[in-house]
């Protein structure tokens, strides 16, 4: 992380970020008015886009409509309205296997095998975007993360994320059966989508709250502690659950070994 030295703190950074953000808004807004609705995909051929939306709608009408209602308007007591949530939210929920949900529960569980392919998720996202656009993901996310400031990300993580996902990113329990998932093995994109859209009980961290750069800092930090860095303190990290598993380990490993030893020492030979 060569960029870790690059640290501008306090007002200047915040103001700079704000200025950049405002600038970016102006540019994006301008581009939007020019290319709309061609922003959904790289291609500019309107038929191609439409076909994505149409394919998305087909999938939606077979798999999502029962809970989220006609045209994503939502069904009281079953599923929220999807108008305005945007493709980032859809792709996050679908690609991590949370949606479609098998049964109503405290919260949608992750699934090892998503029902839809990434391509199908994109179609669904396109359709939901068509119903009413949501937040956008920067196309150069990985570059942003590579240049990010891990230290600043750490501070953001501890103020905003660790209370639910834990200091070591292992996740944590919420009220009444809900939980914040482990961050183990998540991709940059998933992290970004989750922050942007606030899936399930997670609060939203839209771009006005955490700038794309700050999100990149955060992602860089999470990737560092969860995925990049090998625990320096041993072969087993005991799941990084802290004192609870350490307490189990001292009885299961330490005490058990020593109790067997006492049997051997005092045993008649």
């Amino acid at each position: 992380m060569a960029a870790s030295a690059k640290r501008r703190r306090g007002w200047r950074k915040r103001l700079g970020a704000l200025a950049r953000f405002t600038g970016a808004l102006v540019i994006v807004g301008g581009l939007y008015s020019v290319f709309s609705p061609g922003l959904y995909a790289q291609e500019t051929d309107p038929n191609a886009i439409d076909s994505e939306v149409v394919k998305g709608q087909e999938l939606y009408d077979t798999s999502c409509i029962s809970c989220h209602g006609d045209n994503g308007e939502g069904v009281e007591g079953r599923g929220p309205s999807l108008i305005g949530v945007g493709s980032a939210a859809v792709e996050f929920q679908v690609n991590t296997g949370r949606m479609p949900m098998a049964a109503q529960g405290a919260q949608a569980p992750e699934a090892a095998y998503p029902v839809f392919t990434e391509e199908e998720a994109e179609w669904l996202g396109a359709y939901i975007d068509y119903l009413g656009g949501g937040a956008v993901i920067p196309s150069d996310l990985d570059t942003l993360v590579d240049d990010a400031d891990v230290g600043a990300g750490g501070e953001l993580y501890r103020v905003n994320c660790s209370s639910c996902h834990g200091f070591s990113g292992g996740g944590g329990a919420l009220s009444s059966g809900a939980h914040a998932p482990s961050l183990d093995g998540v991709t940059n994109l998933e992290l970004y989508q989750a922050m942007l859209t606030g899936p399930q009980n997670m609060p939203v961290f839209a771009d006005n709250q955490l700038t794309p750069e700050q999100k990149a800092d955060l992602i860089a930090y999470v990737q560092f502690i969860v995925n990049d860095d090998r625990d320096p303190g041993g072969v087993f990290n005991l799941g990084r659950f802290g004192p609870s598993t350490e307490g189990v380990a001292i009885f299961l490993v330490g005490m058990t070994a020593l109790l067997l030893t006492t049997l051997w020492i005092a045993g008649k030979s």
């Binding site: 007002w11 950074k13 915040r14 606030g198 609060p203 939203v204 839209a206």
Partner: peptide
């Protein structure tokens, strides 16, 4: 904010 930036209403997302 923790870093000293003052907070305006438009800096907190809905549901955030």
């Amino acid at each position: 904010h923790k870093d000293g930036a003052l907070i305006r209403p438009d800096m907190v997302s809905v549901g955030g």
